[in-house]
Design a protein around this nucleic acid. Structure first.
Lengths: 220, 220
DNA sequence: AAATTGGTTAAGAAATCGTTAAAATTTCGT
DNA sequence: ACGAAATTTTAACGATTTCTTAACCAATTT
């Protein structure tokens, strides 16, 4: 999931942008001043910055010069053409004038994220000492690597994401075969059994616990 | 020196843009139709395309979908907001409406070139002892040169860029033939097989690993 | 104790992969 | 514009992997 930092002191505009992007399943970080945004940038991994130029604290232009690694889209009220050009030349990747069309903002956000998407970035799902690496489908349990099939991996991922909470059999079945047919319940049993067997080859500890009549969960 | 392709059928506008960019020491290529531009693209190394949408011959929108590697700035008369958004989502990197300020066009041109500048490290793509050279399509594996066809090279490049992460079959198919048709899955198999065969001629080591049901990746 | 659910195993069915060869398409030189 | 060469796609086959089915026993509930 991509993280976008919104730097904008006007609360109305800030809120508008936030809502727009949240609909698209981006993770949003908020800053209301230049200085605040610099603090956030030190702590969090940010994929894109939406930046208003008129800021309290550190000036927007200064920020653009400082930030080299992350693409920046400047959103600002109409200013002199000359300033707009300067902003672009100094490091901004795009410039959108207020008021803007929501769809256009969204499209330009996606353009910037698309440009950067080829960079390697692992999507890690971790629970206790099990690690799933979504980008290369690898599974580590402690230091031992193991191999899961497509469905086994899918089941495991669901269990991991719930971090110890029960995952209903129906949900798992739905994932496996689209529908919740009766016959597949048998199949699920076997998959779970196979996963456990593979885990047992690597460690003695139990990881998958069954909840009678409901489903399965990761041990706590 | 950077090469920019101007695709614009209006001679006045074309000339205006050409003069503007020549002052900045870019190498300019000219096309006056969609089909013409595709011919040029196959022969010449182009760093950026300035594209008018209303074109004789091949449609501008179609071109955008086809061209994945080169950044495109669309320059066009005011059109519906919806079309503008579509153009961006389909692959264009920027959109400038006519009439435009010369300075802004220039600035946006420089932005796109700058973005690709940062990627230049990737111009020579290296993973383990395989080296792809994008500029002349050559492939070295250790000290042995080998020849890949266009599609084979494209597949290889995707795998290399991901540096050992899985590349989904769908992604590879999308790249090969635009769409994700079923029939092409067969074709992909053959391409992979052919690449492996060519590699085997040069070294015994395995390089391409298949991930069952998901896709392929470079061995780690 | 009977009925239901869970766990394991093994075998058959289904899907995916790898290779080959031929047909269809594109590219290229003349 | 034509035919030759190269490339891509299609089709077929066997090999491999994965998934499902079915049978059987253990555990849990009623």
């Amino acid at each position: 999931m991509k993280t976008i930092l919104i730097v904008e002191d006007d609360m109305d505009v800030h809120h508008l942008i936030r809502e727009l992007l949240e609909k698209e399943k981006f993770k949003i970080l908020d800053a209301y001043s230049g200085t605040e945004s610099m603090i956030i940038l030190e702590k969090e991994k940010v994929d894109l910055i939406l930046l208003d130029l008129m800021l309290p604290g550190l000036n927007g232009e200064e920020m653009i010069k400082k930030i080299k690694e992350i693409p920046i889209i400047v959103i600002s009220a109409k200013i002199a053409e000359k300033d707009k050009v300067n902003v672009l030349l100094n490091g901004a990747n795009d410039y959108i004038t207020k008021p803007f069309h929501k769809e256009e903002l969204l499209a330009r956000v996606k353009v910037q994220l698309r440009i950067n998407e080829n960079k390697r970035e692992d999507k890690i799902i971790q629970y206790k000492d099990i690690i799933l690496n979504d980008t290369n489908h690898s599974v580590y349990i402690g230091k031992n690597q193991m191999t899961l099939t497509k469905t086994e991996y899918a089941i495991m991922k669901q269990l991991m994401l719930k971090k110890g909470q029960v995952v209903a059999k129906t949900k798992l079945l739905e994932m496996i075969s689209g529908d919740t047919e009766d016959g597949d319940e048998n199949s699920l049993k076997v998959h779970i059994s196979n996963i456990r067997k593979k885990i047992r080859k690597v460690t003695e500890q139990e990881y998958i616990e069954s909840v009678w009549g409901i489903g399965f969960k990761m041990c706590e």
